[in-house]
Amino acid sequence: MEFDGEFELEGVPPEKAWIVLSDPIAVRNSLKGCRYITPMDDEFSFDEYEPDEGAETLPEADPEVVADRAFREGERYAALMQIGVGSVKPRFETTVTIDERDDESLEMIASGGGDASSSSFSMTSGMRIHDLEGGEGARIEWWTEADITGRIAQLGSRVIKPVADKIVTNFFGSIEQQMTDVDAETDESVTDRLRNML
């Protein structure tokens, strides 16, 4: 199954959009059904991990803390997702690896997969941030290729695609609000410092 699209953010420079989309906490907060996204090692346990619910994001968070927890190329992350698809609401224990991350071209590619009761998926996903043509702002181009099996796959793309579209629309609506707050309340020196840290 393939999904792709683009999203425009007027008034938000690409560099600030990149900083927000590099923060696992900001992504978690904007992704409906996501309990956490955190670096994982071989000892990681989905059942035992307790996320930090009160972790701050920009503009309130300390920029050094945000830079320290930013997605890193080659790092593996655990994400716990619970998304309703039709009458099914599985809890996906997901592992994601950041395969490529380029701070110059503002491009990131990730791959991974997850399992839930009687369903599983694997995916490759990517995004690239461009200058907004004919205006001040950013254009985010994204794509995902997913292979879904089990009970959810039996529902078919007619049921799955609208759910995926809604998740993406909600995500970018929420992330846009975070980016707007960062753009309005974070001065250029902080943004430049973060870019140098990432």
Rank of each mutant, 00 (worst) to 15 (best):
F46C: 06
V12Y: 10
E136H: 04
A70D: 03
E73K: 15
T124H: 13
Q177D: 15
E64M: 11
G156E: 07
R35K: 15
K16G: 01
E53C: 03
E100K: 08
A146V: 12
S111L: 06
T95N: 05
S118L: 14
W142V: 00
V96T: 14
E15Q: 11
E100H: 05
P14G: 11
F121L: 05
P59H: 00
L21M: 15
H130Y: 12
E185K: 12
Y77D: 00
A184S: 11
A55G: 07
A78C: 08
E2L: 04
S119V: 04
R28A: 13
S105G: 04
D192I: 11
D62S: 04
P13H: 07
P51C: 01
D115K: 15
G86D: 12
R35C: 04
I175Y: 03
A146M: 03
Y77P: 01
G74W: 09
R101C: 15
E107D: 14
L106H: 13
S105K: 07
F92M: 12
F121A: 13
T186G: 04
P59I: 02
V190L: 04
D165K: 04
V66K: 09
D192Q: 10
M40Q: 12
F92Y: 14
R28E: 15
L198W: 02
G113P: 13
E10W: 02
G113I: 13
R158M: 14
E53I: 00
R151D: 11
P24F: 02
Q82T: 06
R193E: 05
M108C: 08
E43N: 15
E6G: 02
R76G: 05
S87T: 13
R91Q: 14
E64L: 09
R28I: 09
I109V: 15
E176C: 11
Y49C: 04
S118A: 08
R128G: 06
L132Y: 03
V20I: 15
R28S: 12
S189M: 05
Y49D: 05
V190F: 04
E176I: 07
S119Q: 08
M127Q: 12
G113A: 08
S119T: 15
D192F: 01
I37S: 06
A138W: 02
S125T: 15
V182N: 03
D103Q: 07
L155C: 03
L21H: 10
L31Q: 12
D181C: 01
A138G: 09
V85I: 15
E60L: 12
F121P: 07
V12C: 14
G112W: 13
T149I: 10
N196P: 00
S125G: 15
W18Q: 13
L155S: 01
V168N: 07
A116I: 02
T97D: 12
G112N: 10
E176Q: 14
S122L: 08
D4N: 12
P90C: 05
